[in-house]
Design a binder for these strands. Structure first.
Lengths: 235, 235
DNA sequence: TGAATAGTGTCTTTCAGACAATATTCT
DNA sequence: AGAATATTGTCTGAAAGACACTATTCA
């Protein structure tokens, strides 16, 4: 028997019935803090609690497309997404066995402001000291294994900070070096040396000067830079 | 309705029927080259071709456990595994939609020698210049999307070479600095400076001297080191 | 003019590469 | 002794941290 004949007679029901979902960690950077957008669950289980937006993957849908659909349907956001880890512990969901592929999404603060937050279905919570907090600053946690998913996303974002251009998506298209440094400091959880940071980033070739300047700040305006474009293929 | 009542009545059939598999990239280091163990497929499709060992995930089985089972059943190997990426393109498998979670396994050359290779079901192929080759040195490729899975595994191994202790698993428990340097050079695809490599690794605190020496080499024996143990949690 | 921050220069330390000298074991 | 490789020392240049100085804008 050759491949073609075999495939014609293959029975797709003869496999273990597992569900596959995606969970998205939608991140942005505002007021000196990394923030994550959470969705108030309308369905059981954990109804009414804040959780990462997610959805089941459709049979004919790419994983990254499912992540973007979850983001659009549950938060009204359109953003690039990047896979970071698969979560598959047997008991991670009380309903049944669900393998969830974790994606992070990066959005600048202005775009994030257009998310469903005003509708009351979403809330933007800050992460400070590596810990998720309520708007009031108390530490808080998420249902299912979403705390683990969130920390893994943050760890991977930090790991790749100097290697790829993904984190630039957390800033507006044009930004000052001071803003970029504040972002790096928030992600790495440590303060950085100004001249060294400036030299390193400019000489890395990952930035291009726009010639534009900041305005309306009451002090010397900073030059604005833009991230040199590199494609963010969603997978 | 509360969570408990909801879960009691939840219907697990109401989800899209996707299959979940794991594919394992079993790596070792011999004769100055990184090598990957491939399995000769006994089933259609692609029967008779060399492919990464893999299996479907059982409903009550952890992902890492499935990867280790695939490794044991298809290659007779017991080794730590580490997840690196999920592959889920709609058309990646001709049978049906299969989401595959990629794992790499690290094994020292002596353990790899006990794999199923003599049974004829497995072959150990070298990777040189970042390219998979036959024993004769010709470049070769794998069925399905296994070429992409393999390169992603190698890229992630390289990325984390200086960050975690995973790559030490490719060497025997005790090894000389020369062997370790050869491994790093094979993974990174570039030669390294000997004194700098030596200083950096020793001062990194990731090694401990064993006091043992190499023997039977016809020249000055090197001191043997051991990787400072850090747990490899399989997930 | 003063406040506040941008951007730069300099000194020092640390680290990696280059190269070579010395040490050690086996045949 | 000679072959072959281990191990170490030194020099040099690049990069990063510390710190302070100059520049620029607005109120």
């Amino acid at each position: 028997m050759d491949d073609a004949t075999f495939l014609a007679s293959y029975d797709p029901a003869a496999f273990p019935p597992l569900a596959v979902a995606v969970d998205v960690v939608p991140l942005t950077f505002t007021n000196g803090a990394l923030c994550v957008l959470l969705n108030k669950r309308t369905e059981l289980p954990a109804r009414g609690r804040l959780a990462l937006p997610g959805t089941f993957v459709r049979a004919d849908e790419e994983l990254g497309a499912a992540a973007q659909r979850a983001l659009r349907d549950k938060a009204g956001l359109d953003a690039p997404v990047r896979q970071f880890h698969a979560f598959g512990a047997v008991a991670r969901d009380p309903r049944m066995r669900i393998i969830s592929i974790g994606y992070m999404a990066v959005v600048d603060a202005e775009v994030m402001g257009r998310a469903s937050t005003p509708l009351g279905t979403c809330e933007l919570l800050p992460i400070s000291g590596g810990i998720l907090r309520t708007a009031a600053g108390r530490r808080t946690s998420l249902p299912f294994d979403h705390d683990a998913i969130l920390s893994r996303a943050l760890a991977d974002l930090r790991r790749d900070l100097d290697r790829d251009d993904w984190a630039f998506g957390l800033l507006p298209e044009c930004f000052s070096l001071r803003e970029l440094q504040a972002l790096h400091e928030a992600i790495r959880g440590q303060t950085l040396n100004k001249p060294a940071f400036r030299k390193r980033l400019i000489e890395s070739g990952r930035l291009e000067a726009t010639g534009e300047m900041e305005t309306g700040k009451g002090f010397r305006p900073a030059e604005l830079y833009r991230a040199r474009r590199i494609d963010h293929a969603a997978d």
